[in-house]
């Protein structure tokens, strides 16, 4: 098992390195330097600024220096927020994003999982059609449409919930979490339904019934574990999607999180910030993918013993 984790970690290293390299050079070859837009920058000041950010050095030297900084966990200074480092900015945005992501994931797994399992128990009846139609709506209704619509209905018309903010007013975390989690709840519902249907048609379920187990035990003891495996495998990609979704949700609800910083940095051409955030988020996604792979392997006895022997 540990060997498996170690080998997957080793495989992650080149991926992360590739991300860093590609991002770095992409950003550097971008037309227009970071200080070009400000019209009235005196040449000396510009030179001084470029020296400060090492922009006067050859590209490859910059790259090596950047890698060196990274190795020490240093993401460099921000171009647009003078005096603040990218590390500080990320640290400032991370808590809100992490919390939002966690709630959204909970929404996705709890609502989606329950809906999917319930639908799978009586396929092709109302008990199946209703949650699955809702899931279809969840998949087809993009986050950036659902968010404004929810705000329109619950925030503006009914005035039940605040329309924006994060942790300022009671209940202001509900709409963003729901908005972000809805699409993933829909995916989880479809995956868990398909997974459960697959498992419920297996011979070993018939064996369990032939033993005289009550139906709820057949479901919980024999079917759930196999049926929810696709959901576990989906967690990695879902995490990446949640991060991207948080760009939109944080923008709509004006949440001071990483996603909003990232989008702002993209508009401001704050290259060190883009670079730093990309590296940080990518590493996070790669690690989360790894974690979901390991979890899936660990839940499957066949794979587990394989790694044990290997």
């Amino acid at each position: 098992m540990w060997k498996f984790v170690a080998s997957r970690l080793l495989q992650a290293v080149p991926v992360i390195l590739a991300v860093i390299t590609v991002t770095f050079f992409l950003v550097r070859v971008a037309p227009g330097g970071p200080f070009d837009s400000e019209k009235a920058v005196i040449p000396e000041v510009k030179a001084a600024l470029e020296a400060q950010y090492r922009l006067d050095q050859p590209l490859f030297q910059q790259y090596v220096a950047y890698l060196g900084d990274l190795a020490q966990g240093e993401l460099g200074p921000s171009f647009k927020y003078p005096g603040r480092s990218v590390n500080e900015l990320i640290a400032a945005g991370l808590p809100a994003t992490a919390e939002l992501g966690l709630y959204a994931l909970l929404v996705a797994i709890c609502i989606g999982g329950v809906a999917g399992v319930i639908a799978s128990l009586k396929p092709n009846t109302a008990q199946d059609y209703i949650p699955m139609s809702l899931a279809m709506i969840g998949i087809c209704m993009p986050t950036f449409l659902l968010g404004p619509l929810l705000v329109l209905v619950f925030g503006i018309h009914l005035e039940w919930l605040p329309v924006s903010g994060w942790g300022d007013m009671p209940g202001d975390k509900l709409l963003p979490s729901l908005t972000l989690g809805a699409a993933y709840a829909a995916y989880v519902a479809r995956l868990s339904r398909a997974g459960m249907l697959e498992v419920l048609s297996q011979d070993y379920i018939r064996t369990a019934r032939a033993k005289g187990l009550p139906e709820w035990q057949v479901i919980t003891r024999h079917a759930l574990r196999g049926g929810l495996m696709p959901v576990v495998a989906f967690l990695g990609p879902a995490f990446a999607g949640l991060l991207a979704g948080s760009f939109v949700v944080e923008t709509i609800f004006q949440i001071p999180g990483l996603g909003r910083f990232y989008v702002q940095a993209a508009f401001n051409r704050d290259y060190t910030m883009i670079l730093g955030t990309t590296v940080f988020l990518s590493t996070l996604i790669v690690l989360f993918n790894l974690a979901s792979d390991v979890l899936a392997a660990w839940l499957n006895p066949r794979l587990r013993s394989q790694f044990g022997e290997a």
Binding site: D203, A210, R225, G226, P301
Partner: peptide, 23 residues
């Protein structure tokens, strides 16, 4: 259900698929 597995039990054809791989 009370009869199944207590008074009447079953053995199935394909032993490869009839046991739960997760237990």
């Amino acid at each position: 259900r009370a009869v199944r597995g207590r008074d009447i039990a079953m053995v199935f054809q394909d032993p490869m698929t009839c046991l739960n791989p997760y237990m």
